[in-house]
Computed example of a mutant assay.
Amino acid sequence: MILALYCPDIAQNAGTCLRTGACFGVPVHIVEPAGFPVGNAAFRRAGMDYVDAVEWVRHPSFEAFNGWRRSEGRRLVLFTTRGASSYATFRFQPDDVLLFGRESAGVPDAVHACADARLVIPLRPGMRSLNVAVSAGIALAEGLRQTDAFPPLPASP
């Protein structure tokens, strides 16, 4: 499974996603352009030393990212407030790419059109959305749970 961020606006959120990827052993792909300079320094505040423990990949554009994804035969699972299906009823696969849009605007229609699935995390009425890093953590945990891909627990003392 891969966690992907589409043109993230906030370095701290991207850093938190990198930390989540490090803790779960999941690569993180960043689709540029971002709203901040992409690099280790931009992620240090939220990601701390976890940034050194995660595999992360930069893509210069959505076209480059989508070409890579298609060449790998991976499903694109978009998390969006415009989704029609709940993530809780979706059947994840080990090679899925979980894509999250930018904090300010989500993803454009052309990206929606490329997605193999468009999922929503249900919220109480009147609530617009969750923080992108929180959403990514929820979605990734469910995907890993379904595919039995959580890292193993450390041995008991």
Rank of each mutant, 00 (worst) to 15 (best):
Y6F: 09
F90R: 10
D9A: 12
D95Y: 07
A46E: 07
S61Y: 13
Q146N: 13
V54L: 13
N131D: 08
L78H: 00
V97I: 12
P33G: 09
G143M: 03
A133C: 08
P27N: 00
R45H: 12
G39S: 10
M127V: 13
V107P: 00
H59T: 04
Q146C: 08
R118V: 05
L119M: 11
V51K: 10
A139E: 05
V28M: 02
G83M: 12
A115M: 02
A4C: 02
R44W: 14
F79A: 04
G21M: 09
A84V: 11
R124M: 14
F43P: 00
E32L: 15
E72C: 07
P154K: 11
P154T: 06
A4H: 04
F90E: 07
E72S: 03
A53H: 12
F24K: 10
R91D: 13
R128G: 08
F24A: 11
V28D: 00
S129M: 15
G15S: 07
V107C: 01
A4Y: 01
L123T: 10
Q146S: 07
F100V: 08
G73P: 02
F62Q: 07
A110N: 12
A113L: 11
S86H: 10
R70P: 02
R45C: 08
G126P: 06
E72Q: 12
V134F: 14
A22G: 08
G83Q: 10
R45I: 07
G47A: 07
V107Q: 02
S156V: 12
T80C: 08
V31A: 04
L144A: 05
T80I: 11
C17M: 14
A46H: 09
R102N: 09
L130Y: 12
V38T: 08
A84F: 14
G39A: 09
Y6L: 04
A149N: 00
T80N: 03
V77F: 01
C7H: 15
A141F: 15
R44S: 09
A42H: 14
L123F: 14
A84E: 13
S104W: 15
G101C: 03
Y87H: 12
G21K: 03
L144Y: 00
P60F: 13
A4K: 02
A34K: 04
D148P: 01
V31C: 06
G21I: 03
R128N: 14
V28E: 00
W68H: 03
I30N: 00
G67H: 15
G137A: 10
P94K: 07
L153R: 11
A113M: 06
P125I: 14
P8R: 04
R19W: 05
A42K: 14
A11H: 04
A136I: 03
V51Q: 07
A53W: 10
S104I: 13
